[in-house]
Design a binder for these strands. Sequence first.
DNA 1: TAGATTGTTAATCGATTAACAATC
DNA 2: TAGATTGTTAATCGATTAACAATC
Lengths: 209, 209
Amino acid sequence: MDSKDISKAVIGRLPRYFRYLGDLKEKGTERISSKELSELMNVTASQIRQDLNNFGGFGQQGYGYNVDYLYGEIGKILGLDRPHNLIICGAGSLGTALAGNPDFINAGFRIKAMFDVDPVKIGKFLHGIEVHSNKELEDFIKENEIDIAIVAVPVNSANDLKDKLIDYGIRAIWNFSNTDLDVPDYVAVENVHLLDSLMKLSCTAIFRS
Amino acid sequence: MDSKDISKAVIGRLPRYFRYLGDLKEKGTERISSKELSELMNVTASQIRQDLNNFGGFGQQGYGYNVDYLYGEIGKILGLDRPHNLIICGAGSLGTALAGNPDFINAGFRIKAMFDVDPVKIGKFLHGIEVHSNKELEDFIKENEIDIAIVAVPVNSANDLKDKLIDYGIRAIWNFSNTDLDVPDYVAVENVHLLDSLMKLSCTAIFRS
DNA sequence: TAGATTGTTAATCGATTAACAATC
DNA sequence: TAGATTGTTAATCGATTAACAATC
């Protein structure tokens, strides 16, 4: 298959498969059929088989899927077979909370530094991570093989920051600011629009009642 | 239209429309056509008109949409015409960061209390919000007309907490813990699976390069 | 070999886009 | 009235589900 052909919907489901397989692995489950997994995850067995077959045949007829092997393969597809170096831009409470999330480290995402404009914050260590001045951004990115930048700055400075990040070589942006970042198509952006998400919840709850 | 018939995809797009209309309103734009808005938002004009017409005809032929009016109407659909009372379960760094987010308050989401099991945290005020003991959860929810509960606790206690919340009357859960919550269909859950989101970004970036 | 379950093709379903008559 | 743009129907596209032959 051509890797460009895989739909966003399929990629979006991979982390969830990975999470369930990790749980099964931890429980010591050796093999699982698409039917069993489908019941666990509340999706169709057909969808699981279709999704996985975008990347190759990981199963065996009459047997199902080996949990350990499938976990490893999906991990590779997700890029978790090697570590990733991240920086956090914005040392506010959200940026700081992200810096302290142990899940990221366990999955191989290493937070190398934080950046802020506030002189009071610069030089401090938050969850063990040093806050640098924004002036050091370019050098730090280039010298530390930074893969991914987290944007956790106020809306009004997000787009300027984004331009700089791309300029300095960043190709993956995890955006927490409440605005859309316009990027060229060789840059990947994943948005966590918290307020949008909360509004969606509020709306869904209304429509359900 | 029957409100139950509106697809999740449409509801998921409403907050983004609302955000763009808010920006236009702020800029003083009086009216906008679906074509202009589509160019701004990078979607098709057709989709905008289809989406809006799920809820009624908000526009006028030959004129377009009145920004102010449309903003108000979408706000109503999202349930933003009245305030919502929330609680945050889990006074860790993520829960605390959410407590300090001014965007939520501006949109009418009022965070009334935080809850934790840690005696060291109980009684403290974080971003002006008091941390209560989990033992007070039931009474607090019932006495303060709580709409929405934020789940920002470790994975291993998330499901127990969820059961209690539903038991105490909560019908909308904003879940930040890295697991899926199994809920009856009269309860709305919106997940912010941060690690999933980060993995998706990592994967997308790989496939793009 | 018989049973189970995959990989994969075909059918269905839903969501998006295009087109255009209605109408401001 | 003429031009613009909606509301809405019809066409297309893509994603999901069903079915089944292949095969372990």
